[in-house]
């Protein structure tokens, strides 16, 4: 299978599963009702932990550290990250946070 074909399969399976996750339990809930309620606390805790755990790993992978021993690059990434976190905490806006992070990363590139 070529790369595009494989990509389409990945997307189709990911989207199909996501859609099932949205409609499946809803349909079950309308049929089974609150009998499943006793497990909901544990599944909620697991989901609450799993999503940030996977995101923190993806964040580590996404950090643009092209040269591991370039200390100036570390300072640039660290500075932009701290600023992004401060903006995220203060504004609670995804769009503004991402834009501020990008701007900080760009401005800090001038220290090189």
């Amino acid at each position: 299978m070529n790369l595009h074909g494989q990509w389409v399969w990945i997307l189709a399976l990911a989207a199909g599963g996501t859609w099932l996750e949205r409609v499946g339990p809803w349909f079950l809930m309308t049929r089974l009702g609150p009998r499943l309620d006793k497990y909901s606390r544990y599944s909620a805790v697991w989901v609450e932990n799993f999503v940030p755990a996977i995101v923190v790993i993806l964040w580590i992978r996404a950090i643009p550290l092209t040269h591991r021993f370039d200390m100036i690059l570390w300072v640039q990434v660290l500075g932009a990250s701290v600023l992004t976190m401060v903006v995220a905490r203060m504004t609670n806006s995804l769009a503004f946070t991402v834009l501020s992070g990008m701007a900080a990363y760009w401005v800090l590139s001038f220290i090189r």
Binding site: V51, W59, I63, T97, V98, G101, M102, Y105
Partner: peptide, 19 residues
């Protein structure tokens, strides 16, 4: 160049919201 940091910034936002 700035877009290189967009993905880490997006993940950082999600992390800050989570913690």
């Amino acid at each position: 160049y700035a877009l290189g940091f967009s993905l880490p910034a997006l993940f950082l936002y999600i992390l800050v919201s989570a913690v």
